[in-house]
Design a protein around this nucleic acid. Sequence first.
DNA 1: GTCTATAATACGATAGAC
DNA 2: GTCTATCGTATTATAGAC
Lengths: 197, 197
Amino acid sequence: MLEGAARVIARRGVRGLRVAELAAEAGVSTALVYYHFKDRPGILRHALAFIGDRADRYTALAEGFPPADPADPRELLERTMLLEFQDLPEVRENSTAWGELRAHSVFDPELREELAQAGTAWVAEVAELLAAASPAAPGPAVGAAAERLTALLEGLSVRWLSGLLPLWHARELMREGVRAEIDLLGQGSSSHTHAFD
Amino acid sequence: MLEGAARVIARRGVRGLRVAELAAEAGVSTALVYYHFKDRPGILRHALAFIGDRADRYTALAEGFPPADPADPRELLERTMLLEFQDLPEVRENSTAWGELRAHSVFDPELREELAQAGTAWVAEVAELLAAASPAAPGPAVGAAAERLTALLEGLSVRWLSGLLPLWHARELMREGVRAEIDLLGQGSSSHTHAFD
DNA sequence: GTCTATAATACGATAGAC
DNA sequence: GTCTATCGTATTATAGAC
């Protein structure tokens, strides 16, 4: 039933989700949906949690996998970021639903808390990978790079999912972005501090 | 009336837009709204065009303005990108509405065409500024950098608007992003070409 | 062009049987 | 736990007068 909710959100968006459609998708009555989730916001809450868990699950895949496990940390980071850009139903569905929840949170303060938590954890994870790839870099610079990379990922993801950017191109831009940030971190902490504004 | 539509979209989102609310906002009856825009999709179409125009108008502001007009092209680019990150009602409203239309386009193919056009123009504009800031850089590299910077802007914008990122921080990350891409372009086109994947 | 109804329907939610 | 039936309301859209 939660899978059904994720599927419907990915197909219609958060506000496009109709309880009747979700019920049909899961092959049950609307009454049963309400029995389990109480009301519409309840559906959204559970779906959000489910989608978040599922994303964690396949993010964990980047570690422990085929070519070169303990290998180059830069490649591990690159692989992790590229996990979001795959034309597999589950990934596409998850990316779409997650992006929609993110976009929706602009208008729905209730969604923000859980989203903020997940978002912070995700940025921290990227920062950790980044730090491994560039051990000499100062903490704040790594944090900023992680925020930029995750924001870039989200921007590219929307373009891919709305068909504005072909998958291969999104992947290439993401890869180059990772390299750019790592280069920048490696380049050392000279000049680039500015106090104005 | 179009101002009203933009305002309501910024407040409730595309799918949260209610014809009655828009009518109230503009101080007219719902019937009059339908008289002018035909139906709900019509409202969206016109609102989208209006919001796009308004964005163009204030993007043009970055050129011809106070400190140092013919100055450093890098600073011009930086200023242009930062125009989206201002806590002024009109800017916030426009950013919110535009972001929402972008997000909504994932689910609504009809919105894509006009959105794609505006998006392409915007990327091209950034590419031009980028080329001016780094004249020696090869065209494709400049194009890629422009796509990354605009995608980064969009990702940061969503985070700012949903309260996940304070304005000053979004601005700082954007500024550093611009510098990173320009540095990268300046650094020359050595190594960074990859044929795998 | 602009209004006051009002029709038509879509949608969330619940009651009550099994 | 699960269903069928249905209620109440919110929302889009139109008719018809001014």
